[in-house]
Design a protein around this nucleic acid. Structure first.
Length: 433
RNA sequence: UCCGGAGUAGCUCAGGGGUCAGAGCGGGUGACUGUUAAUCACUAGGUCGGGGGUUCAAAUCCCUCCUCCGGAGCCA
């Protein structure tokens, strides 16, 4: 039993020639005369070579019996793989920390249902490790971006008294004498009063939508970052969203090369997004283009999934679509002064079939207009009295957006479904593990 | 909610009225001079999603329910 301190796999490239100790889990074990253990410790993956000549007899024996996901410590010499040049460990001693019997997720292929039931174990796979580390990098990048840009974090409540947008279905729960409370589907309405205190704010947390959506792009619980900026107009918020998106792509390209390679992500589209100005198109222009490309959409209708696909197949750059008919947008959107049928909203569509990642726009600053909209949408004025105060005491133009974290991760990793972008996905039919 | 597809070994699947329900992976035992989804041999492992029906006979055909997958709508 050695008293040598442990190192981590991520440091091994700088420790060639040294004798080190590692601890982790057996990803796979292959036995021949020389035995091979693929070890993962959370920081990376390394092959451990157990030869009869170098390892002590008990360790050599143990190496032949290791099962998938057994927890072990390994002591050995860091050397370079004779063929690949990657760091590997020539083992001197092995110790079993915790055995593992019949780990369900074997090296063969598995179906989605099985993997979802075993999500807590699926997290150990290389692919999930890579995805969730990129998610981590996005979360950190989002905070760094807004913090560095002078934003103040203003956490929004999760328990709310009513719908923020009035359209989507909400999860409800009993709340003492108030009757029902609802899980927040957006923190935006709480950011707007905040900008009058801090100028620029953002919230970043889980949001909930009880929509019965069964698509590759929907979760019932997802994370959203929502910046809000005082004195900002529609163009400002599109520029902000574009700058943030590029910042995040750059962070991933710089810091997550190993993960992108595990995912076999073609990096060219990300580099294109990073190095070009995003396209911009009004809703009206988009409808004309869609008609020219064969869609049966009519002006005044929202885009269907097919429409987004048609639009994005024509480009390899992210696309801002702005100035939508206000009929299908939220009550708080500022109308276009040049065309009152339009709202000053903008959505960012990601290329490669990922569709809407950001939705936002300029908020109505006129008290009178908002009151009309609340009435028109048949909302309860009493619920919004506090929100209306933003327009009574120094109302200013302001704008903001929301970006769905999971959709951004799905695009950057080029995943087929958002269920892999969050540790424990919540969907219509999925509440456990 | 609607439209399509699928539920057979721990996992991924084959078998589609009639003999004992099969393979690969994983597990077990053994072999094997550096393997990397290692390979090879042997071996254990099944209420064929639940219920009902047709038939001499149902994993197989019919009805129904459940679950999952893909798509639509709605959205970030």
């Amino acid at each position: 039993m050695s008293s040598q301190p442990f190192t981590e796999v991520r440091f091994l490239a700088g420790q060639v020639g040294e004798t080190v100790r590692l601890r982790g889990w057996v990803r796979n074990a292959r036995t021949s005369k020389t035995r091979f253990i693929e070890l993962r410790d959370g920081s990376g993956f390394v092959q451990c070579v157990v030869g009869a000549a170098e390892a002590d007899p008990e360790s050599y024996e143990l190496a032949g019996k290791l099962t998938q996901e057994a927890a072990i410590t390994v002591t050995g010499l860091v050397q370079q793989h004779p063929k690949t040049g990657q760091p590997e460990l020539l083992v001197k001693a092995l110790e079993l920390i915790g055995g593992s019997t019949d780990f369900p997720i074997t090296p063969k292929e598995h179906g989605t249902e099985f993997l979802m039931e075993n999500r807590h174990l699926w997290l150990r796979s290389r692919r999930q490790w890579a995805i969730l580390r990129i998610r981590h990098t996005l979360v950190k990048g989002i905070r760094d971006f807004f913090d560095g840009d002078g934003f103040t974090l203003l956490d929004a409540p999760i328990l709310t008294p009513s719908a923020c947008e009035g359209t989507s279905t909400l999860f409800g729960t009993e709340y003492f004498h108030e009757g029902m409370a609802f899980l927040s589907q957006s923190g935006q309405l709480y950011q707007e009063p905040g900008i009058a205190a801090f100028g620029k704010t953002y919230c970043f947390g889980p949001t909930f939508r009880a929509e019965k959506s069964k698509t590759r792009r929907h979760l019932t619980e997802f994370w959203m970052v929502e910046p809000e900026v005082a004195f900002a107009h529609l163009d400002d918020v599109m520029a902000l969203g574009e700058r943030m998106t590029k910042f995040l792509i750059q962070r991933v390209l710089e810091g997550r090369q190993e993960e992108l390679k595990i995912l076999e992500r073609d990096q060219a589209p990300l580099e294109t997004a990073l190095n070009t100005t995003f396209d911009r198109m009004t809703y009206t222009e988009a409808v004309e283009k869609l008609k020219a490309l064969g869609s049966d959409i009519n002006w005044g209708e929202d885009f269907g999934n097919d429409d987004e696909t048609i639009l994005m197949n024509a480009t390899d750059k992210p696309l801002w679509v702005h100035r939508f008919p206000k009929a299908f947008k939220a009550f708080y959107m500022e109308p276009d002064p040049l065309d009152p049928r339009l709202a000053l909203g903008a959505d960012l569509l990601a290329p490669e079939g990922y569709g809407e990642v950001i939705g936002g726009g300029e908020r109505a600053s006129s008290l009178q207009y908002l009151l009309e909209q609340i009435e028109h949408h048949q909302l309860s004025r009493a619920d919004y009295e506090w929100y209306l105060d933003v327009r009574k005491y120094g109302s200013v133009p302001h704008a903001g957006f929301g970006m769905g974290l999971e959709r951004a991760v799905a695009w950057i990793c080029k995943l087929p479904h958002v269920r892999e972008t969050i540790p424990y996905p919540r969907m219509m039919g999925t509440l456990r593990p």
